[in-house]
Nucleic acid binder design. Structure first.
Length: 291
DNA sequence: GGGCAGGTCTAAG
DNA sequence: CTTAGACCTGCC
């Protein structure tokens, strides 16, 4: 399917369509990928460091192996899915057709359930720079040290077991504010198996969602993010301020309630709602719609 | 320096 | 079941 070549610790892939690291990492689904001076992105996934760069028709995966590419990164970057088909379907809508042109290289990552849950609890009611800072601090304090790359030290996202040892005060040291209590409560629920995060993928979206809503600090928006970004529930449609504004601006033509936007979007985009959300989010931010 | 920022929780109608 | 306020705090 893809042509893979290897040199040193670099894996070079030719033939990946519909993938641009910038679009994928800047569309709001992840917080631990950071831009390097050369325009590449470095991140940590499942205890492994990776650097990704697009160079024309090549994607260069640095600091990894062919085995990891096939067993880990193919799945993480959703490279088995035909995004062209999804775009074709969504492009029947003229607004989405426009939005897709801006974020044509978006792929929805298959992230870890636990990391996604805690990350999006932290994300509520704040801007992206502070969210990233918060999560990095948490990783550095409580995550396992993995190694260095380009002179920076990298840490894994702390496991539920690692976080379970922390007090609310300790969590607060990572700039989490009042969300520290949510993190402590949710960690406790996970450790006591009151919700089995790694079992929810099997359930229908609605059932998985109601399980997630039991967690402290997880409301409708955060639950939808967890479903979409870590459980392959592509009918989920997370509505944050940006998506709400873009939906009202282009489709509904008036300010309305979250509930109405939710119903409207699910009905309109159905099983592709999550993909539509990503294109619209990127589009809204690029254009600064509704600011 | 005061207001804002990828929502959730809680209490009340 | 829908709506209004409070909420940590770093950053612009």
């Amino acid at each position: 399917m893809y042509k893979i070549t290897q040199s040193d610790e670099k894996i070079i892939i030719k033939g990946i369509k519909d993938f641009d690291p910038i679009h994928t990492f800047e569309c709001g689904q992840c917080f631990r990928w950071n831009k390097e001076e050369d325009g590449s992105y470095t991140g940590v996934v499942k205890g492994k460091i990776l650097n990704v760069k697009k160079d024309g028709e090549y994607i260069i995966f640095d600091k990894t192996t062919k085995d990891d590419f096939i067993n880990l990164w193919m799945d993480y970057f959703d490279l088995k899915r035909d995004y062209n088909l999804i775009k074709e379907k969504l492009s029947k809508d003229s607004i989405l057709k426009e939005a897709i042109q801006y974020g044509e290289g978006i792929r929805i990552l298959n992230q870890d359930e636990w990391e996604t849950t805690i990350s999006f609890i932290i994300s509520s009611n704040r801007g992206i720079p502070i969210i990233k800072k918060s999560i990095e601090a948490l990783c550095k304090k409580y995550g396992t040290y993995i190694g260095a790359y380009k002179g920076k030290r990298y840490y894994d996202f702390p496991s539920s077991k690692q976080l379970f040892k922390c007090s609310e005060e300790e969590i607060k040291e990572s700039y989490t504010g009042y969300r520290a209590k949510y993190i402590v409560n949710t960690t406790c629920m996970i450790e006591k198996n009151q919700v089995d995060l790694y079992d929810l993928k099997k359930l229908f979206t609605y059932d998985a969602r109601s399980e997630l809503l039991k967690l402290s600090g997880v409301g409708p928006k955060v639950a939808d993010c967890i479903l979409l970004f870590s459980m392959e529930k592509y009918d989920a449609f997370p509505i944050d301020v940006w998506v709400k504004r873009v939906m009202e601006y282009f489709y509904i033509h008036e300010e309305t309630s979250l509930k109405k936007v939710q119903l409207f979007s699910q009905e309109k985009f159905k099983d592709l709602a999550g993909f539509a959300q990503q294109y619209l989010f990127y589009y809204a931010r690029e254009l600064g719609i509704g600011k």
